Amino acid sequence: MPEIGMQPKENRLLALLPPEEYAAVASHLEPCETPRGFIIVQADAPIEHAYFPCSGVGSVINISPEANRVECGLFGRDGFGPTAAAVGAGLSINEVAVQVPGFAYRLSQGKLLDLMKTQPVFASLLHKSAHVLATQAGFTALSNAVHEVDERLARWILMCHDRIDGDKLALTHEFIAVMLAVRRPSVTTALHVLEGNHFIRSVRGLVIVRDRAGLEEFAADAYGKAEEEYERLLGPLRKSTTLADPTTATFCLLPGS
């Protein structure tokens, strides 16, 4: 369940603001729960708010004229969405939806743009975050073109693990297929490959990360470049937590309908 009392500084970008800019931005933030399936913005629709997650994961989804869907990026407490809000685009060409439930703070698009004019660090952080998400989208395209499905799944698990502190993820096989741009049976096969290598353990709908280092090695060049760019520009992506028992990092995969 999302934590109603989460503070804005649980979002990495807001936490990086100097005190005076944080105060200016925080005074306009509106708290909101973001349940799974919540639509931050529809494709080709006006942008009303920018969301700064404190927990949960949002997906940026491209939709073709024939209604084919594929995830091109994801973000959580590390960023904000839609990034088009920061350039005054007005409309979002992507759908941005919540896939892992959580909690966020939001700003109206108009107030976001006003604050960017008067708060230079805030504006700089939003520009850097938008750049990193674009970098991630580019490497997602590369990975979809050159990597096997199991490597791409390993990359996705790592990207989610970066953002959730080992919380359970209630995700359908159907959506994983959308994220990886594959058919649902390929998702099941890829999960079996990762489990066979002892990187994860799948029990009653739970996928438990057993060996993150092994998962990173398996993902190889499918994972890491966008994360390195984030850390170069914005600092650590993951919270510095140490788990006594690595099997406490869990993901929940629900059967697709």
Rank of each mutant, 00 (worst) to 15 (best):
K117V: 12
P2G: 03
V132A: 07
G110T: 13
F122A: 01
N68S: 15
Q99N: 13
F122V: 07
H147A: 08
T248C: 07
E30K: 15
D114W: 07
T242V: 13
T118Q: 11
E10A: 15
F139S: 04
A97S: 09
F75Q: 05
D114C: 07
S240N: 12
E21Y: 02
M1I: 11
L234C: 05
S143D: 10
G224N: 05
L206Q: 08
A43D: 09
Q7T: 15
I93V: 15
L153T: 05
S27W: 09
A177L: 02
A190S: 11
G76F: 02
P120Q: 08
S143I: 01
V87L: 10
D211C: 09
R232K: 11
S124H: 14
H147T: 07
A24H: 08
L115R: 07
A104H: 03
N197H: 15
S108V: 06
A50Y: 02
A219H: 10
M1W: 10
R183C: 08
L158N: 06
I39N: 06
E229L: 11
L17V: 02
A141P: 07
H49Y: 15
L91D: 06
T140S: 04
A15Q: 11
L133A: 12
E66A: 14
R77D: 07
I208Q: 01
S129W: 08
S202I: 12
D114G: 07
G73A: 08
A26C: 01
P65F: 00
A15C: 06
P8S: 08
V193D: 05
R238T: 10
P46M: 08
L133I: 14
E151K: 09
A86P: 04
L206W: 06
G73R: 00
S257K: 10
F80W: 14
S124Y: 12
L107W: 10
V193E: 10
E33F: 10
T118A: 11
S186F: 01
V203W: 01
Y223S: 05
